[in-house]
């Protein structure tokens, strides 16, 4: 099963290599990884998407916790969370009907055209994996020149303590 693991680490040189090295050294799998700063300049947030059975995920979390520079490890998959990734997609738009089709698709997905030439558009989109896959499927017939995708970032949803709201949430789900 896929797990999204959020790791808060000391913002020091070499930390990413310790984390990545742990995965390669122990034969764990990394599907995507993204790193960025947090509100506190002395820490960084690493988000790793990985796969494995319960025993492997337990080992991954324990081994990450064992790294001296790791402050906190959360398996977001155990919680309710929001996940996003981003992509930049460059497409061919030589024919005018392609240009309008591309704009329609962009609008449907609430994406944006961020660069334009007479023969191309570059589209920026954020969303979960499915959304990005979906827009790619629609854009593919127009002719995709290049795609750049980020790794996933994820954040836990804030706990909703009021029972009534939880009920509403359940209904919505």
């Amino acid at each position: 099963m896929q797990h999204i693991i959020s790791i808060l680490v000391e913002n020091k040189f070499g930390v990413l290599s310790r984390v990545a090295g742990l995965f390669s050294g122990r034969g764990f799998n990394i599907e995507s990884i993204s790193v960025g700063t947090t509100m506190d300049a002395s820490t960084s947030q690493i988000t790793i998407v990985t796969k494995g059975d319960e025993r492997i995920i337990e080992q991954i979390i324990k081994q990450l916790n064992k790294l001296i520079d790791v402050i906190k490890v959360v398996d977001l998959s155990e919680k309710d969370y929001i996940v996003r990734e981003a992509a930049l997609i460059k497409i061919h738009t030589s024919r005018s009907e392609d240009r309008s089709e591309a704009l329609r698709i962009t609008e449907i997905f609430r994406a944006r055209v961020v660069d334009s030439t007479p023969t191309s558009y570059t589209i920026e989109i954020t969303g979960d994996e499915n959304k990005i896959d979906a827009i790619l499927n629609l854009l593919r017939p127009l002719g995709i020149k290049e795609i750049v995708r980020t790794g996933k970032i994820a954040i836990a949803r804030e706990d909703m303590k009021v029972p009534a709201i939880q009920e509403v949430k359940k209904l919505r789900a």
């Binding site: 080992q59 081994q63 916790n65 064992k66």
Partner: peptide, 8 residues
């Protein structure tokens, strides 16, 4: 003392 040893 090392949690990674447990259930490894």
């Amino acid at each position: 003392i090392d949690p990674t040893n447990i259930r490894k």
